[in-house]
Nucleic acid binder design. Structure first.
Lengths: 230, 230
DNA sequence: GGATGCGGGATCGTATACAATCCTGTCCGC
DNA sequence: GCGGACAGGATTGTATACGATCCCGCATCC
């Protein structure tokens, strides 16, 4: 009942957003094929708009477009995974510092809401939604820093991080996340830029350390393991 | 002879690249309208591929898509201009440091070529091409640092910087550019990461200081000045 | 028996056609 | 003379149609 095949709603961005959300919440696994006709029928739109949406997602590295093959949910390599988090390490700590200087009570309230919703999603057994909200927390900080350009980059990096987590997640330490976010919020509330910067840096390092980035290939996870011992 | 209206060459990315190059070299001014039929006829392709190319460029903030209005070459606001250079300030110095650690003789030779080509273009009275090569220098450094993700961001930021320069350029100090790049190359050749980082930081600050970012509107430059005294 | 060539089916890439929207110039009323 | 409504033209948004390419399965040949 919640998801009816809408006859036609608005534009291609809606389709892109819906697809991105599904990918972000791990409802569509990495490597999954996104058939144009199928997606078009689901959303009640033509292939034209689906193609536009897929190209949009491809530009954000959420899907991979292979010529005459179709669109697939991206499977970041370990190299890409490292690059994504190195980029985040360059962008986010300094942005968090700026956010600490500019955060208004309204901003802090919104962040608090995010954290609460994240907890609620976890309690409700919806880790995908919790992960999504966790990412929105980072994006919101960039927005508070009043840097829409950087916020755009972080949005992209968070989206890719979601795929990376889907592929390379190892430790089951969900508590770390929420606690780190809470500490970060406190630093922002205190307008302690230096602390916010350090906390963000550490938080990102924790995230990377919770991944298993030893393998060489992402599809090795489904291929090499299959023929590990011949 | 060099630029014939190709009957049909390859794909939409070619059109996007050609358009991006023209914008980058200031052959198409900010605010210019990009008619789909017109562009399609120029490149000998259909509107479908032109639309794809324009959406690609829109995603990189090189063109602005207005619903039912068409595509226009972007006109970054002063706010966007500041944001772009703040993002570059976050990304490029640290990337230059990494590049200094990894630069091979082959990399250095390629950078030397870039600088030489930049000088040649300036001498040939083609400042647009010189600016393009100057941007490629920055992108090449990110590539040397072996960070394709960051390189992608910098590519986007350099492209937007080209538009910003077209709109807000003030001082005519082209020497600064080439000299800064030469000093940077020397630091990279010496594998002096710290110096490369500092030089890049200073270079970006010089770039910003060569702009006139006082105005509030970008189109004021072409509209208000026209009817300054009625 | 295994590898190679080939054909059917499906899917993507591009072009074209139609509908919706917007801009511009003109006409009418005040 | 001037402001507003309206129609014409142009341009974009979306859908559909056709051609090209690729994958998969089967038959054939070595």
């Amino acid at each position: 009942m919640t998801d009816r095949p809408h006859p036609l709603e608005g534009s291609s961005e809606t389709v892109a957003d819906r697809l991105a959300l599904a990918i972000h919440e791990h409802r569509i696994p990495p490597g999954a094929k996104l058939n144009e006709d199928e997606v078009g029928e689901i959303f009640g739109v033509s292939r034209t708009v689906v193609r536009t949406a897929l190209q949009h997602l491809a530009h954000d590295h959420l899907v991979t477009l292979r010529r005459n093959r179709g669109a697939f949910v991206a499977q970041p390599t370990v190299r890409e995974a490292r690059e994504v988090f190195e980029a985040r390490a360059l962008l986010e700590p300094r942005t968090a510092r700026s956010a600490a200087d500019r955060a208004t009570p309204d901003d802090l309230a919104r962040l608090e809401t995010h954290i609460a919703a994240e907890h609620a999603a976890l309690a409700a057994g919806d880790p995908g939604r919790a992960l999504r909200l966790s990412g929105l927390f980072h994006i919101e900080i960039a927005r508070i820093a009043d840097q829409t350009t950087i916020a755009g980059f972080i949005t992209q990096l968070v989206a890719r991080s979601s795929l990376i987590i889907a592929l390379y997640w190892h430790r089951r330490n969900a508590l770390c996340e929420s606690h780190a976010h809470h500490a970060l919020l406190k630093a922002l509330a205190d307008h302690d830029g230096k602390r916010a910067e350090d906390l963000m840096k550490g938080h990102l390092l924790d995230l990377v350390s919770s991944l298993d980035l030893r393998n060489t290939e992402p599809l090795a996870r489904s291929l090499k393991e299959a023929l590990a011992r011949p």
